[in-house]
Design a protein around this nucleic acid. Structure first.
Length: 275
DNA sequence: CCTCTATGGCGAA
DNA sequence: TCGCCCTAGAGGC
């Protein structure tokens, strides 16, 4: 269940765990068996995240890369052998093993064995990723400023903002007091700059902690207390999945509407037109 | 047992 | 815009 920060954490963890090691590769489920055989016993060279795409590199020309996209429900768990509870092999798409570690992939949208050009294609087609040092926010701005689509839709477009998902979209728009329905072309440059800077901040923090916490520490103890209350997704947020509950800032009920098949949450009081 | 949902994205209409 | 793919956990009966 990943937004970009999870994928970046996985890339880092795969690298520290498997890089430089010979890795046993298999597909207990069978759906990645032929590919696994080509990789089994080869040396892992590390992993990289591009937005929500994960590439794990092996010393295995001409197809050195395992391209994983977790989609909505995929999970990749990395732990010590024997520590996790036993789960069904029926759903275990990919298993990486050394003597001291294992990685289990279940339910991915994609798991493919690819060549370098596929990684280059993904990098090319992705918008700037706030978690990558090579991100050029100008590329996002040049698309946003020319678009009639809403900023809520633009933030979910991986070709414009790579790695941003439904939670970061909702939260960054609340924090920037921008209505999700404002057209990109109506955003002023300073507002875009602030939006981008906030994405870098929020996603960077989430990369460090593994959670999405977006509630500013500047609020009163009373508000902080309400924010800290048990949240379904495990972080402290302003609007995500808080439909009908009072806004932490203005007390108005949080709104919910479906947008492109996804739930969009916002505060109609706090979030206004272009600034 | 069943149904619903979820931090995504594709391809057919 | 809709249906579909992938899986697990929650909740209803």
């Amino acid at each position: 269940m990943p937004e970009g920060h999870i994928v970046h954490r996985l890339a880092r963890e795969l690298s520290t765990t498997f890089a430089g090691q010979r890795v046993g590769v298999s597909s207990p489920q069978g759906r990645f068996s032929a590919e696994s055989e080509l990789l089994d016993g080869r040396t892992c060279l590390g992993a990289e995240a591009i937005g929500k795409h994960l590439f794990t590199r092996f010393e295995s020309p001409p197809f050195p890369l395992v391209h994983i996209h977790l989609g909505l429900i995929g999970k990749l768990r990395i732990d010590r052998p024997g520590t996790g509870e036993v789960q069904s092999a029926q759903t275990l798409r990919l298993l990486l093993r050394t003597d001291t570690a294992r990685a289990e992939l279940r339910g991915p949208q994609w798991c493919r064995l690819v060549a370098e050009d596929e990684r280059d294609r993904v990098l090319q087609q992705s918008g700037p990723d706030p978690l990558r040092s090579d991100a050029d926010s100008e590329q996002a701005w040049s698309k946003v400023r020319r678009s009639q689509r809403s900023i809520g839709a633009l933030l979910m477009d991986q070709g414009i903002f790579a790695g941003v998902g439904n939670i970061f979209r909702a939260e960054v728009l609340f924090r920037q007091a921008i209505s999700p329905f404002v057209a990109g072309s109506l955003l002023r440059r300073p507002a875009f700059e602030a939006l981008w800077a906030d994405l870098v901040e929020l996603m960077g923090q989430a990369l460090l902690t593994g959670r999405i916490d977006t509630v500013s520490r500047q609020h009163s103890p009373e508000v902080m207390g309400r924010a800290a209350r048990e949240d379904p997704h495990g972080g402290e947020v302003y609007v995500y999945r808080r439909a009908g509950q009072p806004c932490l800032v203005c007390e108005n009920p949080i709104s919910l509407r479906e947008m492109h098949g996804r739930n969009l949450y916002w505060c109609a009081q706090c979030q206004v037109g272009p600034s």
